[in-house]
């Protein structure tokens, strides 16, 4: 495929990953931190940025590892383990670099990094990338788009929940219950974007 065509496809995939195929609202990945952290906007923004960064880098790294290590060795089924190792190592590495060179950033993002290693959305993005057979550039767009989509969803959710804190909610629905209903309404809204593509 030529360059412009691929760039265009990358943009389309990126847009789709943010809106129409939002990894949180359509495939439900990364729900646990979503429900736990989305009480405050500030924490959500921090976690969101960390996810965007880690997801973009790890999908690209995982693409390289899959394409140039696992496929030639005929060990595709090892991707589950290898991807997890790469994600964990990468997060650890970023943590060390941040601590050393940018204590301020480490203070604000550092606490979220360990949470990310076990965020299923990160692994999920890499697995989707393999199954859909994306090329390198498209993978880059997909990883970035998925991260932004996740961040958008969690920040919007945190904003809504902050405004809800004074409302009266039935007892059984308090906490995760009402959060799921809000997420459902958001998912409904995001489906509206499908007409755009």
């Amino acid at each position: 495929m030529n360059w412009t065509g691929e760039l265009w496809q990358m943009l389309v995939v990126c847009f789709a990953a943010v809106f129409t195929g939002n990894i949180l609202l359509t495939t439900f990945l990364g729900m646990c931190p979503f429900l736990a952290v989305s009480r405050q906007v500030k924490a959500s923004v921090g976690l969101g940025f960390a996810v965007v960064f880690v997801m973009t880098c790890t999908t690209v790294l995982n693409w390289l590892a899959y394409r140039y290590v696992l496929v030639p060795l005929d060990l595709e089924f090892f991707r589950f383990i290898l991807f997890i190792i790469i994600i964990a190592t990468f997060v650890q590495f970023v943590e060390m670099v941040l601590e050393r060179y940018s204590p301020a950033l480490y203070q604000s993002l550092g606490i979220f990094l360990p949470l990310i290693t076990v965020n299923c959305a990160i692994l999920g993005a890499s697995l989707f990338m393999v199954i859909r057979g994306y090329t390198f550039l498209v993978t880059l767009g997909y990883g970035f788009g998925s991260g932004v989509g996740w961040m958008l969803a969690i920040v919007a959710m945190a904003g809504i929940r902050q405004n809800m804190s004074m409302e009266r909610v039935p007892k059984g629905l308090q906490g995760p219950g009402i959060a799921l209903i809000i997420a459902g309404l958001m998912a409904l809204g995001f489906i509206g974007f499908t007409g755009v593509l």
């Binding site: 609202l25 359509t26 495939t27 439900f28 039935p170 007892k171 059984g172 629905l173 995760p176 219950g177 009402i178 799921l180 209903i181 997420a183 459902g184 309404l185 998912a187 409904l188 489906i191």
Partner: peptide, 19 residues
Amino acid sequence: VMPPGAFFTLACLIWALRA
């Protein structure tokens, strides 16, 4: 059968079971 349905169903179920 669309994704929002999963959120609503699970929320209602949690509500009922917790109550």
